[in-house]
Nucleic acid binder design. Structure first.
Lengths: 240, 240
DNA sequence: CAGCTTATGCCAACGCCATTGACATGGTTG
DNA sequence: CAACCATGTCAATGGCGTTGGCATAAGCTG
């Protein structure tokens, strides 16, 4: 097999596979995401990906160094989809809120991919561009870099943390997901009030609320905090 | 192999393995967590767990239905460790803060285990007890159940979300972790100011801040929000 | 203590998996 | 048009989770 993967841009000879498919990094990533969505994390194996593409599994090693490299490419594609079509309005708060909600939504749209790539740093183009954009929004609001970085850090961590947590609930393999849901009805809902009075008293409310995300609320809390920091910065240096 | 796993409490015949070890659910879970800590997620396989215990891999299926069942047991042990020794002080805010920090710390102490068990609902004893305790703290503060559940939901999701995100950074296999860190120095730190001015301007600050958790700040935001809700409830119904 | 039952651990085997090296083939280039 | 070599394929390796059948000894019964 190849020692080195040829960068996508340098590919010249596009040779169709036996099944007549012309491979590309893009096609492989898209197919991998489709497999993830269809059959969950367990559904994505090199062999099955090869089969789904109509190519020998070992062909994929011409495009990715290994499974981990493919994972990073999927991570970058997720961020890319979140950012696609976004444009700054000039209102930092609206922009940041929109960015947060877009990332959250993009992850929830592909929960298995989101969990698979949780907290990886791909260093690929889309990820870098997103970071550049977020930092730019905060810096344009007139914050000193120290505060920019504090809020950037909280923003990106909180967004990814909720995105992954919310995605994880959707991403469980059907069996595990069914088991987890059954726990609520079979275990929690049947706890006697004598031993677990607080759960017993609130179980209907708990069940009703469990499927919503707390992210929007948390995001607004963070934006309030950022607004206060901006007001402070303006008061300290009105010329800025 | 056994159709059904014998519950730990019902075990009578404790037969040592060839290597002289007497198995138990507790011993297996502890050994699994040790393997996770030593060699990461890839280090925990049924075969290696058997070897580490001095038992045939298939013996473990007498204690757990499969790998997923073992995962849930690890999840429950993690929560159990977070709660061990905790006692209510009667001050809801201090209690809730302490609970959040304990869960966060317990996860960070076993990052690989934290990631492995991310967002699973075990329904086992320790998890149920923790939920009962948290709900109890909020209800004792004089909130109506509707608000209790709203804040409980945000609290537990935010805590687990940050715990898992922060743990994930520590939990990467050494190779991947090294790769991710290298990205910061090899890729981000070298981006030219012409194309990525905002990253270039803030990179030293970013690198310095990256290793801290934003969880304590986010937790305090949530506690502020809860305090406001409690004040509202008291104003609306002074008799409560 | 003797004998029985059966829980428990062990063995061998199955069909997956990721990854690799050697080889075949056909696109591109000169 | 011919040669090169990037790309796809094949076959093999070693590891994985899981299972069925079997041996053995723990604890019960008398």
């Amino acid at each position: 097999m190849a020692k080195e993967v040829v960068p996508e841009a340098a590919r010249k000879r596009r040779k169709p596979t036996k099944a007549g498919v012309v491979l590309s990094e893009q096609l492989i990533v898209e197919t991998a995401m489709r497999l993830l969505q269809q059959s969950g994390r367990e559904g994505l194996t090199v062999r099955r990906l090869g089969a789904a593409l109509g190519a020998d599994p070992s062909s994929l090693y011409r495009y990715f160094r290994g499974a981990d490299d493919l994972t990073l490419a999927i991570a970058d594609e997720l961020i890319g989809r979140a950012m696609r079509g976004w444009e700054a309005t000039g209102d930092w708060r609206a922009d940041l809120r929109e960015l947060g909600m877009r990332i959250h939504s993009a992850y929830l749209a592909h929960p298995q991919a989101a969990v698979l790539t949780a907290s990886r740093v791909s260093g690929r183009a889309n990820e870098i561009d997103a970071d550049e954009v977020i930092l730019g929004v905060l810096r344009s609001a007139g914050l000193p870099d120290r505060e920019v970085v504090r809020i950037y850090h909280a923003f990106i961590d909180q967004t990814l943390a909720f995105a992954v947590l919310d995605a994880a609930g959707l991403a469980l393999p059907p069996a595990a997901r069914a088991a987890d849901e059954a726990v609520w009805h079979a275990t929690y809902a049947r706890l006697p009030a004598e031993t677990h009075p607080n759960i017993a008293a609130t179980v209907p409310l708990l069940v009703a609320r469990m499927n919503n995300s707390a992210y929007p609320t948390a995001l607004d809390m963070l934006l309030d905090n950022a607004a206060a920091a901006i007001a402070r910065a303006r008061a300290a240096d009105p010329g800025a």
